[in-house]
Design a protein around this nucleic acid. Structure first.
Lengths: 153, 153
DNA sequence: AGATTATGTAATTATGAAAGTTACGTAATG
DNA sequence: CATTACGTAACTTTCATAATTACATAATCT
């Protein structure tokens, strides 16, 4: 399956924005991210609905952080993206009347629910300020830019 | 993303096999599962490598459970499928030198690792016999067969 | 006012992984 | 030796994410 990298991408954008005071254009952000400005606008557009960023048009316009990073958790960002699907593993047939199917779905479902709860709990415990601090602890090299990308495991 | 339903599918197959003493052909299993015999052979072929099932060719041939279901955990089945990818959410760029990227990957990675550990721990605690028992507790209707299928959330 | 710079979005295309299908080889049985 | 089944490679289909194109709208600067 192709993994959804929107959360990773948007966090990357936000932390880069945190390094600047002036608004950054989607063009500039796209270059940092090795992607297309439209992708940036789509992602940040979702965050704007939740008040995490603001945007301005025209000369000197662009995107700005709209909240204290200490008050924004990883979970807030996840939610702003409208709860992306977490698991790559799914049930074969959600609505079957087959009892075997239902038992499988039920038992697996319990495990996935527990794992999801733990994951989201962790997300709530990490603020963007924490992540930004983590960046500065290791600050030495400059950002670089290569394509690729993948999963956890 | 399209969710991977192989684990769900193969569990479905195994629990159906548990209801029969004779070997079942991939043709018969495919019909129960509303899928193609080749798909069944592919899935069960992976399980055979781990000794979970056995197969025989020719007349009267087919697939048989090769282990006591009490001794096979959900994790064993997961592993037999060669550790399918668990998460639909991934890092944008696994190998970037960008420190922001690395911080994002690291922080998110910790949460995902914790969730994965919990999920797999749960998988280890459930045997196929447990799942089979769960089926029999609710045994009343007959298996039925409709297509579709999806995720958790 | 009018040129320029940005965002806002719809529509289209590209990518990649799972799933399904076809085709044919191999082995075991009646 | 015909039939039944597995064993697999190769190909096609499906579908969601990501990237791209195209164009509208709004704000700023000269």
């Amino acid at each position: 399956m192709k993994t959804d990298s929107r959360l990773s991408g948007v966090l990357h954008i936000l932390l880069h924005m945190a390094e600047f005071d002036e608004p950054l254009t989607s063009e500039a952000l796209a270059q940092m991210m090795c992607t297309n400005p439209v992708v940036v606008r789509r992602l940040l557009g979702a965050l704007r609905k939740e008040g995490l960023v603001s945007s301005e048009k025209g000369h000197g316009g662009g995107w700005r952080l709209a909240k204290d990073l200490r008050k924004v958790s990883l979970y807030d960002v996840y939610r702003a993206l409208e709860h992306p699907k977490i698991f790559a593993i799914g049930n074969r047939n959600e609505t079957s009347g087959c009892l075997v199917e239902r038992a499988v779905n039920h038992v697996m479902g319990e495990s996935f629910e527990a794992a999801e709860a733990l994951l989201l709990q962790r997300f709530k415990e990490v603020s963007l300020a924490d992540m930004s601090a983590h960046v500065h602890e290791h600050w030495a090299e400059k950002p670089d830019c290569t394509k690729a990308g993948q999963s956890h495991q």
